[in-house]
Design a protein around this nucleic acid. Structure first.
Length: 409
DNA sequence: ATGTCC
């Protein structure tokens, strides 16, 4: 077996952990053991090899539930995930000076704080949403109106259309990568931006209030849940599904716009897009059928990999990434890891490493190398090779990618 | 992760 089985002394609180040969912090284990105690967990919690302590729920966990949903398990970055596209370009088509490409990407896509020089960007989004964005928003607007009518607290000061097709900050990034045959890929990582955050936060607080009202005691406040059949259960399901759609559209629009702007920039020869390796969430909840039963599956830092389904497992700034094909492993509820997983906290990484370390670790990658991105240093993450080895019964590797340009939010 | 406030 490729997984370890954990449970309490009564044989309850079952966990199947794909953590052989990778670090697994005791704090993360303690956290996930609490979640596994919840009475509405269906069968067991599956842990992916990138497991680490998270806020609310353990990152790298697959939590199937029946009759209840835990909003803090999905978290605030609802629908966060990856998208990658293979282009007709090869390494030879790239200019010697990759900084031109990095600048073109930074000018094309609103990212991070207001660091962009693009006339149509402002802090966190668009000054004036481009026509294509307005059009994409039309498909989201009707459901959005219902969501904020039900939950006015979810409304953001700035309209979510202004952030559709924008990257965000933290670990969200856009990369140009080369695969094993030197083909160029465009890959990106982003989520549901401000609106998803607000939706997530408001329902996490609502669930905590509901638990107090019903005097339900929990091993951890962040395990507050909505029981099926209660008012907020349905509202949350609708809202979280909408935020996931928004996140997916956000990634799609960003990719479309990037391709268009890279073509316009004339830095690269004429190119087409060949292959899309899905646009997959790794922070989400979905109704799925497992072992013949309909259940809710929350993947917190995990990717769904049904048999033949493609997924993306990104490594850190200086490491490889993988396009994978699912093996449909039932024991994992058809899942794999969402990355390498942090080996140390951002604070610890900032304390341990210097800008010089970061420059060395990201050699050959056209990216920011200042003090602001030290917490993203590859050494702060688990070894991606070990992580891939620990889940070789969950996925096959289809493509191995190495970034040459990276834009961090 | 985000937005807001320090």
């Amino acid at each position: 077996m490729n997984y370890n089985v954990l449970s309490d002394e009564k044989g309850k609180g079952l966990i199947k952990a794909w953590t052989k040969g990778v670090p697994f912090e005791p704090e993360a284990e303690k956290q996930v053991r609490k979640a596994a105690q919840m009475p509405f967990i269906y069968k067991w919690i599956a842990l992916m090899p990138d497991v680490h302590l998270g806020k609310g729920a353990t990152i790298g966990s697959v939590i199937p539930t029946k009759g209840a949903i835990i909003p803090a398990a999905v978290g605030v970055d609802i629908g966060c995930g990856m998208m990658a596209v293979q282009t007709s370009l090869t390494a030879n088509d790239l200019p010697d000076d990759l900084s031109k490409i990095r600048l073109a990407i930074e000018m094309a896509c609103p990212h991070g704080d207001f660091s962009s020089r693009a006339a149509n960007h402002k802090k966190g989004g668009w000054k004036e949403a481009p026509a294509a964005i307005e059009k994409a928003w039309e498909g989201l607007d009707e459901a959005y109106q219902k969501i904020i009518a039900k939950n006015p607290q979810a409304e953001t000061r700035r309209h979510p259309m202004q952030q559709l097709g924008s990257l965000g900050g933290g670990n969200h990034f856009i990369e140009l990568c080369l695969d094993e045959a030197n083909r160029v890929w465009i890959m990106l990582h982003s989520g549901s931006r401000g609106i998803g955050n607000r939706i997530g936060m408001s329902y996490i607080n609502q669930a905590k209030k509901d638990m107090e009202k019903w005097m339900i005691n929990l091993p951890d406040k962040d395990l507050a849940y909505f029981p099926e059949g209660t008012e907020h259960f349905d509202d949350y399901c609708d809202a979280v599904q909408w935020a996931q759609d928004y996140a997916k559209t956000n990634r799609f629009m960003m990719m479309e716009n990037l391709i268009q702007e890279l073509r316009k920039s004339e830095i690269l020869p004429t190119f087409t897009t060949n292959k899309m390796a899905v646009n997959c969430h790794h922070n989400y909840v979905e109704k799925e059928n497992h072992f013949g039963e309909n259940v809710l599956v929350t993947r917190k830092g995990a990717v769904r990999t049904r048999e033949g389904e493609l997924g993306i497992i990104p490594g850190s700034m200086g490491a490889k990434s993988f396009i994978v094909r699912g093996k449909g492993n039932q024991e994992s509820f058809c899942s794999c890891s969402h990355g390498a997983g942090r080996a140390m906290s951002r604070t610890a990484a900032r304390k341990m490493y210097s800008v010089e370390d970061q420059i060395k670790a990201t050699e050959g990658v056209e990216c920011r190398k200042d003090s602001g991105v030290i917490d993203e240093i590859p050494m702060a993450y688990k070894d991606i090779e070990d992580v891939m080895a620990a889940q070789n019964d969950l996925v096959d590797i289809v493509h191995t990618l190495k970034q040459v340009v990276c834009v961090k939010g």
